[in-house]
Design a protein around this nucleic acid. Structure first.
Lengths: 342, 342
DNA sequence: TTGTATGCGTTATCAA
DNA sequence: TTGATAACGCATACAA
């Protein structure tokens, strides 16, 4: 195993020496070629090649007093739902010359301080939140000192941020309606944590769909989970223990839906004959489980991309379109839902 | 939606002014308190609080000529296997005051240039490879100019890097032996791409286990896939089309195993009665599929942590233990494997 | 068109 | 113990 040391690379001074010009001229020749004569430009360019020069970001950023780095706060990097959003974010950032740090919030311990440090030491120019919370406590005044931010996927009215999102209420409404159209009357809901605005909207969609169908909403039919497989299984266990268990469940995420599916089968239930299940997100696995999952498909890559574009917009000061963006989603019908047996 | 601007924060000069000392003294008072008298130290500390000072990383890094940022190259950020490794990496890096950029290689297009730029502009101090390849083409001489690197999970002898890994051959050997002990004679393998050294070792383990049991190795029993659910399904389809299809398959990853499981069930096969399946990685989902997956558990968090420690070791120049690290893994027996029906 | 000088925020060397 | 000064690498206002 070879051990390397960082190699000292050529600086502008080296180029200047080689080309027999000042460093100022080197900088101009490379940054604003039109401000330099043809001949010196050539000489500088050749010299740059000869010494293997490449501008060092540290110097440039120091001068501009910006880091060209952005921070993405992810509630849980291990949740497959977020992976493709992150991809959209990274690709778009790279296209614009920005770097992206990923901040994982799943382990709440020490991270808080790390994130605050990033801001306070100016190691990041902006922040992109995939959850509904700031990754640290901040009073109203402290919030005034935060860098430009954008929220994606979630909601936090009190932060008043530009937001990229889908219409969660309508998506949930449509999904539950679909179950009702299949003949289901006892429809359960495996919801995410109460404090997530996202879940509030999806739950509202569920409630409104039931009401519109003349079904009384029974709170016992609503179970909560924290978006893990395990939680989905536990939530369904709870619903199946009811005197009159649901014949269909609408889940706030595919991961929880898969957990529920796993539990249903372990209990000897057949999906969808004995129980219909609808998920949310359309993660890649939802196509390969048994049965494949009916689910609401979110444009994850686009969510990441649009959010990054909004953030770049803020950074460059031209708040042309810095409102929020609403993206489309779609119900994908697969094998986990079916007609109720009469 | 509120739009923020980056707020100008206090610099050392402000503190110096307030405390009526020079900036040099401010720096000392905060960095090497013992080199400053008690009284001035107090005055500086109070002034720093008053003006809300916090050292800016840009200035510090410029001076030190380092970015305190590391780059992790991930073959596919959407593959759940890598998520927890990344977590181990990030936590460990944060503990040592380093930042981590995630570079996703799944979309091979423009990324190459981005990664080279990061190195050449000195925006990163080191690199951590989770795949077996550099994320760009580099001749031997160019490789001399690369920053300190460490490899995790994969292998690349020609790069001569410190490496953190498990014993893939033995793990595969044990897994296949387990299938043989259950009575299986026709054991297939759903392998990853030929060019991945990782897969070479796991395939060798498979081959050696068969040989030890006196079973002739039939190349038709080896199908290849690229670590997606889809590929796992296609690979099993191929194996089941054989005149004498295998009664058990050893897969090079859980994701492919789940794809295979999905296909088996779609063909009306019962797992494990008609077909036993073993996966690799023990991703969290493997516990919640139906049936739960027998698999080789890798210490993913530890892999990330150890790799980061090796990298930090190189960066700080004290190559005390900069050899490679071999970590343990374990066969987890669940419901996807069973005795063959005689 | 080019060079000189200065600044970005921090740290280190040297002398006082 | 402290301060003046220079240095890191780059960019720009101003002067030549």
């Amino acid at each position: 195993m070879k051990t390397r040391k960082a190699v000292a690379s050529a600086t502008m001074k080296d180029v200047a020496l080689k080309a027999k010009v000042s460093t100022a001229t080197v900088s101009r020749a490379l940054m604003n070629p039109e401000k330099v004569s043809q001949t010196t430009r050539n000489r500088v360019e050749q010299a740059a090649i000869d010494v293997g020069y490449y501008p060092q970001a540290l110097g440039r950023n120091t001068k501009r007093n910006e880091s060209r780095t952005l921070l993405v706060i992810v509630p849980d990097i291990c949740d497959p739902f977020f992976s493709e959003i992150i991809r959209g974010i990274e690709v778009t950032a790279a296209e614009h010359g920005y770097l992206v740090l990923i901040g994982d919030c799943a382990h709440q311990n020490q991270q808080e301080k790390t994130f605050i440090d990033l801001i306070i030491t100016k190691q990041i120019d902006g922040m992109l939140l995939l959850g509904s919370q700031l990754p640290f406590d901040a009073s109203i005044e402290e919030q005034r000192n935060l860098p430009p931010m954008v929220m994606a996927n979630e909601f936090a009215p009190e932060l008043e941020l530009p937001t990229v999102h889908i219409d969660n209420l309508t998506a949930a409404f449509d999904a539950v309606n679909y179950l009702h159209d299949l003949g289901h009357q006892r429809i359960g809901c495996i919801a995410g944590p109460e404090e997530m605005p996202l879940c509030h909207y999806r739950l509202q969609g569920y409630v409104q769909a039931l009401r519109r169908s003349g079904i009384t909403v029974d709170p016992h039919y609503i179970a909560r989970g924290n978006f893990t497989y395990e939680a989905g299984a536990r939530a369904l266990e709870q619903l199946l223990a009811l005197p009159k268990p649901p014949t269909a469940v609408f889940c706030h995420s595919d991961v929880m839906a898969l957990g529920a599916l796993s539990w249903a089968k372990r209990q000897g239930l057949h999906v969808p004959r004995d129980l219909s299940i609808i998920g949310f997100d359309n993660i890649s696995l939802s196509e390969f489980c048994d049965p494949p999952l009916t689910t609401v498909s979110q444009p994850r890559f686009a969510i990441g991309r649009e959010a990054m574009l909004l953030l770049l917009d803020q950074l460059h000061g031209q708040n042309v379109s810095s409102g929020s963006r609403l993206l489309d989603c779609e119900l994908i019908v697969r094998g986990s839902t079916g007609n109720i047996l009469s």
